[in-house]
């Protein structure tokens, strides 16, 4: 896990991986597909950008196999902004992850938005120096990803829809399951671990601290300042906004507004101010109208 660096310090430790996510807290991470969008995101106060070839709404509309982005495109975005740059690898595709790490990306998202490369195993994330963020719909899934080395979790929501209902459901589920563990007596945690299908040690840690051992962001369907603020009020440490910004009528305004609402998430006056005159939100699609096999949140296990 830890590797010797050119520096005489030690790199790739759990602490620097999880610590990196701590520094992102309270922030908005935006999906961008080119340099122009990356700059808009940085100017708006995004805490990081996710470099990808197509935003989830387009992946959904165009279909086909979605893969890692072209390294040249990722390089261009790394060179264009000074904030951290993230990029997506397919679930289980450890070579895509190796390639992305070699580009100098700051965080890898092992993402259900791309087509999975392995329907059984996720990537062994301990083997990497770069940290990983992974999606989860419930606590068991989150703890399985952490057990594999994820240094940050994002609730999945349903990407590319502009429908926030699944994001709400997933963060409520994760938070609710954490509260439930905290209320259990010690001798009940063995069965809780079995039911969650998660390692007993991690279950005990969550029960004791009342929190995940890593930062928890939320993602999937966030399209408005009020959506972002609601996720923060529900206990998220920050938000990912994918298609919601650059599929809207006025991305610059909306990017700024979502950042501002995330900062002032507990102040309705500020959220109201941020919500004014943003033009059209992304048109969106109701999750209920998407046939189950096409729901991205179902990917990953």
């Amino acid at each position: 896990m830890a590797t010797d660096a050119t520096n005489t310090g030690v790199t790739g430790t759990t602490r620097v991986k999880r610590g990196m996510a701590d520094m992102l807290k309270g922030g908005v991470i935006m999906d961008v597909v080119n340099v122009e969008q990356a700059k808009i995101a940085e100017d708006a106060g995004a805490i990081a950008v996710m470099a990808l070839e197509r935003v989830p709404a387009d992946i959904r509309a165009q279909g086909g196999v979605a893969r890692m982005s072209d390294p040249t495109m990722i390089d261009e975005i790394i060179n264009a902004v000074s904030i951290p740059v993230m990029a997506k690898a397919r679930i289980g595709h450890f070579v895509e992850a190796q390639v992305i790490q070699s580009l100098g990306v700051d965080y890898i998202d092992e993402s259900e938005v791309l087509t999975p490369a392995d329907y059984i195993n996720h990537i062994d994330k301990w083997a990497f120096t770069v940290p990983f963020v992974c999606g989860a719909t419930n606590l068991g899934e989150a703890l399985r990803r952490i057990n594999e080395g994820a240094a940050m979790i994002r609730s999945k929501g349903e990407a590319g829809t502009g429908d926030v209902s699944n994001a709400t459901g997933h963060i409520r589920t994760i938070k609710g399951e954490i509260r439930r563990l905290s209320s259990m007596s010690k001798d009940e945690l063995y069965v809780a671990a079995k039911e969650l299908q998660a390692p007993y040690e991690l279950v005990c840690e969550v029960a004791e601290t009342g929190a995940l051992p890593v930062v928890l962001f939320t993602a999937g369907g966030i399209a408005t300042p009020a959506d972002a603020a609601m996720m923060m009020q529900l206990g998220a440490d920050g938000v990912f906004v994918g298609s919601g910004i650059f599929k809207s009528g006025d991305p610059v305004k909306r990017a700024n507004a979502i950042v501002q609402a995330t900062l002032h998430f507990d102040n309705p006056d500020e959220i109201a101010k941020a919500s004014r005159g943003l033009g059209e939100a992304m048109v969106g699609i109701n999750v209920a109208d998407i046939p189950v096999p096409h729901r991205l949140a179902e990917r990953g296990w």
């Binding site: 660096a5 520096n7 430790t13 990196m20 990306v105």
Partner: peptide, 14 residues
């Protein structure tokens, strides 16, 4: 100097 030691893969403990 910002990010003087490099990107995240270069983050370290000492």
């Amino acid at each position: 100097k910002r990010n003087a030691f490099g990107r995240q893969v270069d983050s370290f403990e000492i």
